[in-house]
């Protein structure tokens, strides 16, 4: 099932590289928004600045309420992940565009980065004592708990990747199928549903990253 008309095909970018092209599209959209707003920040926000402040302010409030004041140190990354995935997901709803998150490579890259980053934060905060996070609650159970904890930590990037990929790819396929069956009438209502689902997936990725960072920063149980 292929997308009928794509901007990347029109620009001469092949099928295997289109997700890279659309990732750059998402980055350019975010950069443009940032540069547009940077020069003329107002005390009383209007328009686009208001919209972005609602999103970022709400996320910051949520992060600080969950992680505590320490959450402010990692908030730029968390907010960046949410906005980036949100824009990438919503690119799939635009005509001539495809969601880069519908390709497993984009998601695997982001999930591996999150995995490396939260372990780095844990090592930075605890030093060699970070190993206590993998040892479980009781001393005698350490030989059993260590492999279990290691496996459950390694399962994290896998579940992050597969969840985002499965949801977005599935939505793209459903949209294409509906479009071939009844071009406008069937796709229009699904747009609302998929808008919610895509926003929820971006939020889930953000929230899981936050939980992993929280787990790395707080005391071992």
């Amino acid at each position: 099932m292929e997308h009928p008309v794509l901007l990347s095909t029109l620009l001469g970018i092949g099928e295997p590289y289109k997700h890279v092209f659309y990732t750059w599209c998402a980055m350019i959209i975010l950069f443009v928004v940032g540069f547009l707003l940077r020069g003329k920040m107002k005390t009383i926000p209007t328009g686009l600045q208001n919209f972005m402040e609602v999103i970022i302010g709400g996320l910051e409030e949520f992060t600080v309420a969950t992680v505590g004041e320490k959450g402010r140190t990692v908030f730029p990354l968390l907010c960046g992940i949410f906005l980036f995935i949100m824009v990438q997901n919503l690119l799939g709803l635009l005509p001539f565009c495809d969601a880069p998150t519908a390709n497993i490579n984009t998601n695997a890259a982001m999930a591996l980065f999150v995995f490396l980053y939260y372990n780095y934060v844990g090592l930075r905060s605890w030093g060699p004592g970070y190993i206590k996070h993998f040892m479980g609650p009781m001393k005698p159970l350490v030989p059993l708990m260590l492999p279990i904890e290691l496996i459950s930590h390694m399962a994290r990037p896998l579940s992050l990747t597969l969840r985002l990929f499965g949801n977005i790819r599935g939505e793209e396929i459903v949209l294409l199928l509906f479009f071939t069956m009844a071009p406008i009438a069937a796709t229009f209502p699904t747009y609302f549903l998929f808008f919610l689902a895509k926003a929820l997936q971006a939020f889930i990725f953000y929230m899981l990253t936050m939980i992993y960072l929280q787990g790395a920063m707080e005391h071992a149980h």
Binding site: S152, L162, R163, L208
Partner: peptide, 12 residues
């Protein structure tokens, strides 16, 4: 998230 967390542990 709960469902996939269970499966991914087993797969890994």
């Amino acid at each position: 998230t709960i469902g996939l967390h269970m499966v991914s542990g087993i797969v890994v």
